[in-house]
């Protein structure tokens, strides 16, 4: 009977399937059962002799068997492959205590962010600054509230924020470290604070949701806007060269008052005006200002005794300007042909 024959083919195939010890054997078996000249096809060829009902029934059953076998072949194939890989892995065992090999691998390179960060930092060390760091995932309180940005402050909209929960966020700037420093350190201080910051900005040529900022914070009894100007000018010259000028112009940040944007004379045209500086001869590089007395008070220090100034410079932006990098995404992409240019 043709139905018994079908079941025999199935049983035999399943039996052989389990015995197949390699994927080659399995493929052979697969062809002999399911292939064009295979047993299953052969049985279907005999259908012509059957009645219409029998034909339909056979078609149904043969399909079920076929589907079952395809699945079983696949399962067996995966098992054999895994088995083969396991054996290969065993064969590949090495003695991890053997000494390493030193091969000539060419000259590596630091990322342009590291290079620019060090240039700024080192210029400031010469002015008596020390380094300070804080966490990348931060309390809302430190990132905003202590810095004179209470909940619902409209200026919170200036910085689109990644939140972890209603109290914790990815810091949008390195400024929360100011609050940490003011709260924990003995004054006076001169700090340079590098770190990654995060903003909800879709990446494009000039935006990255992750970027690097460097905060500067000076707290002392008698610092002034003129000192801020001088300090910023000194590291601008260290990074861009002695003939680059910087200027401050009025702006607004909730954590500083007076606040200013810092422009540098265009490094491309030297200040004459070109397309990079939109013809103005100046390029904006960062914000700064005299620390808002509320921030000092919020952090438990007396604003009548201590005056402070601060800035936050985007290291990425400076790197792009300095090296003429046209697309900030290159910094984070990891293409060796880009990274190897900064030896």
């Amino acid at each position: 009977m043709i139905f018994d024959e079908l079941m025999q083919i199935r049983a035999k195939a399943l039996e052989q399937l389990e015995k197949a010890a390699s994927s080659d054997e399995l493929s052979e078996l697969n062809t002999s059962v399911l292939g064009r000249g295979g047993m299953l096809t052969a049985i279907l060829r005999t259908m012509g002799k059957l009645s219409a009902e029998e034909r339909a029934e056979l078609g149904k059953r043969a399909n079920a068997v076929k589907q079952e076998l395809v699945e079983r072949f696949e399962a067996r194939r995966a098992m054999l492959a895994e088995e083969a890989e396991r054996k290969k892995i065993e064969r590949e065992a090495i003695d991890v205590t053997l000494p390493g090999k030193r091969i000539a691998a060419g000259t590596g390179a630091l990322n342009p962010l590291t290079l620019v960060y060090r240039e700024i930092r080192d210029a400031l060390i010469g002015l008596g600054f020390t380094t300070f760091e804080g966490p990348e995932v931060e309390y809302d309180e430190y990132n905003f509230t202590l810095l004179n940005l209470p909940p619902n402050h409209p200026a919170r909209d200036m910085q689109d924020t990644f939140y972890v929960n209603d109290r914790v966020l990815l810091r949008t700037h390195t400024s929360p470290c100011e609050a940490r420093a003011l709260k924990t350190l003995d004054l006076p201080v001169r700090l340079v604070i590098p770190g990654r910051v995060f903003r909800v900005d879709e990446p494009d040529a000039s935006h990255s949701p992750v970027f690097m900022q460097m905060e500067g914070l000076v707290v002392d009894r008698n610092v002034s806007l003129a000192d801020l100007k001088g300090t910023i000018d000194s590291f601008v010259k260290a990074v861009f060269g002695e003939n680059v000028e910087s200027r401050l112009r009025p702006s607004y940040f909730p954590f500083t008052e007076p606040s200013a944007e810092v422009d540098i004379s265009c490094s491309i045209c030297g200040g004459k005006g070109c397309s990079s500086c939109k013809g103005t001869g100046w390029m904006e590089i960062m914000g700064c200002g005299i620390t808002n007395p509320h921030e000092i008070e919020n952090c438990g220090k007396d604003p009548d005794e201590w005056r402070a100034f601060a800035w936050g410079v985007g290291v990425d932006r400076v790197a792009c300007l300095k090296y003429g990098i046209s697309d900030i995404r290159l910094i984070y992409e990891g293409d060796g042909r880009f990274l190897s240019q900064f030896k």
């Binding site: 930092r121 400031l124 060390i125 010469g126 002015l127 008596g128 600054f129 020390t130 380094t131 300070f132 760091e133 006076p188 001169r190 000076v218 002392d220 009894r221 008698n222 610092v223 002034s224 806007l225 003129a226 000192d227 100007k229 001088g230 300090t231 000018d233 000194s234 200027r247 401050l248 112009r249 009025p250 008052e257 007076p258 606040s259 200013a260 005299i290």
Partner: peptide, 29 residues
């Protein structure tokens, strides 16, 4: 008021200086 006076007087008219007073030991952590 310093903000108003500063911007009306002109930040560019304020000569840059470096911090005076105590000297600081600058160092890397």
């Amino acid at each position: 008021i310093a903000e108003e006076i500063g911007r009306l007087y002109g930040y560019t008219n304020i000569a840059p200086t470096l911090m005076r007073g105590d000297t600081f030991r600058g160092y890397l952590s």
